[in-house]
């Protein structure tokens, strides 16, 4: 199986590549549209700030490349947020592939970023095959995707937000699968088995 990781300025590509290697896959890290399109699976990771990341993606025409993907794609953390329509982080227009808004945690009585291990519930869909409600996964984020019809995992931090969603061939998780211990590795394996 060919697995590609989108290479850009906000990707923690090495961490994701390491996690894939632990489950037995050697990924290709690339920003070449053709290579991305010819992969069986594509992972779109991310750590950083939305507007800077989007500017870079547009400049390299990676926005068009990602939009053209028809195979299963997994957005991780900032990658999930960038797949949405827009983000409150510096009022950024995002890729618009997931019909959701990205909002900031209000930070009233809660520490922001939401950092650490939290539980995911109301799990559905193939990414969570074999999981019971209440698994802990690792989050680091100040912005979140609102809950909607395509939410496949919920998390609560003050309010409920989408910890994961699936929309057509686009799947996304707000937590860091690559840092979520054995649970995260099983979610990656489930994605690779789609």
């Amino acid at each position: 199986m060919k697995v590609a990781i989108v290479k850009y300025n906000a990707g923690n590509t090495a961490s994701v590549a390491n996690a894939l290697a632990r489950v037995g896959v050697e990924p290709l890290i690339t920003d070449d549209a053709e290579l991305l399109r010819s992969a069986d699976k594509v992972i779109f990771p991310g750590v950083g700030e939305a507007s800077t990341a989007m500017a870079y993606l547009r400049e390299r025409r990676l926005d068009e490349a990602i939009a053209s993907l028809r195979q299963p794609v997994l957005g991780v953390c900032l990658g999930m947020q960038l797949l949405c329509s827009s983000s409150e982080e510096n009022e950024t227009e995002c890729l618009g592939l997931l019909p959701y808004e990205v909002r900031r945690f209000p930070g009233v009585g809660l520490k922001v970023p939401h950092m650490g291990w939290n539980q995911v519930t109301d799990l559905r869909g193939p990414l969570f095959d074999g999981f019971a409600d209440g698994e802990f996964v690792y989050f680091v984020h100040s912005y979140f995707v609102e809950v909607g019809d395509h939410t496949t995992a919920l998390c609560r931090y003050g309010e409920r937000f989408a910890a994961a969603l699936s929309y057509g061939n686009f799947h996304a998780v707000q937590f860091h699968t690559e840092k979520s211990g054995k649970v995260g590795e099983r979610i990656l394996e489930n994605f690779l088995n789609l």
Binding site: N18, Y138, E178, S180, G184
Partner: peptide, 8 residues
């Protein structure tokens, strides 16, 4: 460490 450890 990064290659082998699956927590932050």
């Amino acid at each position: 460490i990064a290659r082998r450890i699956n927590v932050p």
